[in-house]
């Protein structure tokens, strides 16, 4: 595999369905980083991930993984990627020992020792059928399988949804460990923004199939803020400066995308830091502009 800068490069991906279009999406996942892929339910995260994995084909645009075309070099790419889905994609009659026997004959770089070490670490029984596993156990099993064949790229679709905070924390620590190797990268889609705030290096927001923001997480958080003011003061604010505003009987909270600029322009205004959660909510309401 030739040298590459970005683990994933998405250029102008468009996918049309009845009632939904993923519209001209472009972003990169730099090598050695975690990209948090954020959007509410139905935003197009799974469609994007399925396009990267070649599970579905885009109508327009291109995807390259490790600098290779994801369609022409599909087999080569798939030796080095691991996908983790929101539901366990293994038969319920199998157990971990069976899975090891299957996957070691599929992946050239499969390590049974690594797999069983992860099973021990996650306290997963090797002879219990998957049908008897809890949701947390199923997710840990997928992660153990994903990390056992020296994959350079993990692609996760809502992997932490439905898990309790303790398990989620454990999993996030595993991912941080995984990224100690600079060759490793993660694309993680989620609408649980608190997880991404903990570990993501960069974030991409999409809503209704359209790209809203993409960039380094710290840059995104530093550039956005929640401007708080009274309703009368709100009237004097240039509406082009705000993404959307939440209007209550007590006052107005508006998301601004140029925090430092707004701090200078509206010197008396209070502008608080915005969390990824806030950014998502305000952007989703950007068309309404004012909401409550």
């Amino acid at each position: 595999m030739a040298e590459y800068t970005n683990a994933i490069e998405i250029k102008g991906i468009t996918k049309r369905y009845d009632g939904f279009t993923l519209d001209d999406l472009s972003f990169n996942v730099p090598k050695g980083s975690i990209m948090g892929f954020v959007g509410q339910n139905g935003a197009g995260k799974t469609t994007t991930i399925n396009t990267i994995l070649n599970i579905i084909r885009a109508d327009e645009g291109s995807v390259s993984v490790f600098g290779l075309d994801n369609i022409k070099d599909e087999k080569e790419i798939k030796k080095s990627i691991a996908a983790i889905f929101d539901e366990l994609p293994f038969h319920e009659t199998l157990n971990a020992k069976n899975l090891n026997s299957i996957l070691k004959r599929i992946f050239d770089e499969w390590s049974s020792e690594t797999f069983f070490n992860y099973l021990d670490r996650f306290s997963l029984p090797s002879k219990k059928k998957f049908g008897q596993f809890s949701k947390g156990m199923k997710m840990k099993l997928q992660i153990a399988a994903a990390l056992s064949h020296n994959a350079k790229l993990l692609i996760m679709d809502e992997a932490t949804t439905g898990l309790d905070p303790v398990v989620r924390n454990e999993i996030l620590d595993i991912f941080l460990e995984y990224l100690q190797n600079e060759e490793h990268s993660i694309l993680m889609s989620s609408h649980i923004t608190s997880d991404l705030e903990k570990i993501a290096d960069s974030v991409t927001f999409i809503d209704k199939g359209k790209l809203l923001i993409t960039g380094y997480k710290d840059d995104v958080l530093n550039s956005h803020g929640i401007l708080k003011c009274s309703r009368s003061d709100y009237e004097s604010i240039d509406k082009n400066d705000i993404i959307s505003a939440r209007i209550t009987e007590f006052g107005v909270e508006a998301l601004v995308s140029d925090k430092s600029g707004c701090m200078k322009k509206y010197s008396g205004a209070v502008i608080d830091p915005a969390a990824l959660d806030d950014i998502m909510v305000y952007y989703v309401n950007r068309n309404k502009k004012e909401w409550s």
């Binding site: 994995l53 070649n54 599970i55 087999k75 080569e76 798939k78 030796k79 990627i81 691991a82 996908a83 889905f85 539901e87 366990l88 994609p89 293994f90 038969h91 319920e92 599929i106 992946f107």
Partner: peptide
């Protein structure tokens, strides 16, 4: 087992495997 492959979503997982 083609039916149970669909029920278990293995048919989606196998699309991520390095096999034609």
């Amino acid at each position: 087992n083609t039916g149970s492959d669909i029920m278990s979503r293995w048919n989606i997982y196998q699309k991520t495997l390095p096999m034609t």
